[in-house]
Design a protein around this nucleic acid. Structure first.
Lengths: 206, 206
DNA sequence: GCACGAAATGACCGAACGGTCATTCGGGTT
DNA sequence: AACCCGAATGACCGTTCGGTCATTTCGTGC
C-alpha cells in the first residue's frame, strides 16, 4: 500500500527541490538570465532530470511562481482573519508583508521577476497569486461594507492601489542592500498606512 | 562649413530613426523578444547598419529608453511650472500623465519594458528619467516648503509613492484593451488624487 | 564620367539555450 | 547473483541571436 504513496512523496519532493532551486537562481540572476542548466546545477541534478518532472520551461516557471506565493499567502492568512479596528488591521497587514519579504528577500526577487510575466502566467496555474489578490479584495470589501471606508471608492480599485504602494516599498527596501540604510519595517509601513488613512495634505484631520 | 554640420545632422537623424523603430518593436513584442534584426527591419535598414550608430544592444536600449522619457518630460514640464492650489496642480499632473500615455500607448509599453531593467540602465544614460524624477521631487518639496503637505512626510518618499500609484493605474489602463472598458482619464486620475489628498477612511474630513 | 572615401550591407561565425533520447544506473524482487 | 524496470543522465541537435567584416553602394569633388 505504501508503494504508490512513497513514489508520490518522492516525486513531490523532487518537484519542490527543483522549484526551490529555481527560485534561488531567479532571485540571483533574474528570470531571463536563468537557464534550465542553472536550475539543474543549483538543484544538484542533471538537466534532463528537470524534464522528467516538468513538461517544459514555461510549466516549471509557472509552478515555481505559484509556489513562491504559497508562503506569502500562508503567512498573511492569519492577519486577514484577525478582528479589531480597520486601521490596526491594515497596519498589521502591511507590516507582515514587509517583514515576510525582509526575511525572504530572494523569494521576493523571484516573485517580482515572475510576476512581470503576469500576462503569460495568468494562462497557467497562478492559484496562489489569485488567492492573495482575492483575500486582499475581500478584506477591503468587508471594511467598506462595515462603513469604515469612503463609500465612493471601489474596494477592488483600492486593492490595486494598495498593491502598487506596498510593492513599491518592498522594491525600494530590496534595493537598499545595506541593512543600516534601511528604515525599520514599522516606519516604512507607517508611511503607507498613514498616507492611505489620512492623505498627504497638511492639517487635513490627521 | 556646412560639411561637418550636415554629417552630424544626418547621423542624429539616423540614430533617432533607429531608436523610434526600436520603441515600436519593443512596444509590440516586449523587450526580451526584440532582436536587432527586428529593429533593423522596422527601420528599413540592414542589421549591420545598426552597429554603425550604436556600439551594441545595451547602448541602443539605454539610449532608446532615454529618448522614450524625453517626450514625457517635455509634455509634463509646463504642468510643473503652473501655479495655483496644490490639489489642482496635482490633479493636472496626474491627468496629463495618464493622457500622455493614452495617446502614446506604445511608448509606455516601451518605457515600462525598459524601466524594468532599471538596475542595468542606471549605469548608462538615463538622463531623461532622472530629470522626470527630479522634477517630481522638486514639485513636492516646494509644496512641502509652502506648508501644503504634512510636515511628517518626506517629499522624496512621497514622490516614490506617487510614482507607484500612477504607474499602477497606467498599467491597468493599458491592460484594458477595449476603449469601452476603460474609465475616463479624469475618473482614474480622480481616484489617485482623492486617495492621496484625503485618504481612504470614511468621514475623515473629505 | 571617373575616382575615392565613407556609409551601408548581409552572409557568416561562435556562443548559448531549450529540448531529446539512447544509454546508464540503482534498488528491489525472485 | 542474476534480472528487471523506471529514474537519472549528459552528449547531442536544431535554432536563435548578437556581433563582425569583406564586399558593395553611393554621394561628392575634380
Amino acid at each position: 500500500m505504501s508503494g504508490k504513496t512513497k513514489e508520490k512523496v518522492v516525486e513531490q519532493f523532487r518537484c519542490e527541490s527543483i522549484q526551490d532551486a529555481a527560485m534561488r537562481v531567479i532571485a540571483r540572476k533574474g528570470i531571463e538570465e536563468t537557464t534550465i542548466q542553472n536550475i539543474a546545477d543549483e538543484a544538484g541534478i542533471a538537466k534532463g532530470t528537470v524534464y522528467v518532472y516538468f513538461r517544459d520551461r514555461d510549466e516549471l516557471l509557472a509552478k515555481t511562481a505559484d509556489r513562491a506565493f504559497e508562503g506569502l499567502v500562508n503567512d498573511l492568512r492569519p492577519q486577514f482573519e484577525t478582528s479589531g479596528p480597520f486601521a490596526d488591521r491594515l497596519r498589521g497587514l502591511v507590516q507582515r508583508q514587509l517583514r515576510f519579504f525582509d526575511e525572504h528577500r530572494a523569494l521576493f526577487r523571484a516573485t517580482l521577476a515572475l510576476t512581470q510575466r503576469e500576462t503569460e502566467l495568468r494562462k497557467q496555474g497562478t492559484r496562489c497569486y489569485t488567492e492573495y489578490a482575492a483575500m486582499l479584495a475581500q478584506f477591503l470589501t468587508d471594511a467598506s461594507a462595515a462603513g469604515e471606508l469612503r463609500s465612493d471608492i471601489d474596494p477592488q480599485e483600492l486593492a490595486a492601489v494598495y498593491r502598487d504602494c506596498v510593492r513599491g516599498v518592498i522594491i525600494r527596501r530590496l534595493d537598499q542592500k545595506v541593512q543600516k540604510a534601511r528604515k525599520s519595517v514599522e516606519d516604512d509601513a507607517e508611511l503607507i498606512v498613514s498616507i492611505l488613512l489620512h492623505g498627504i495634505q497638511s492639517g487635513d484631520s490627521q
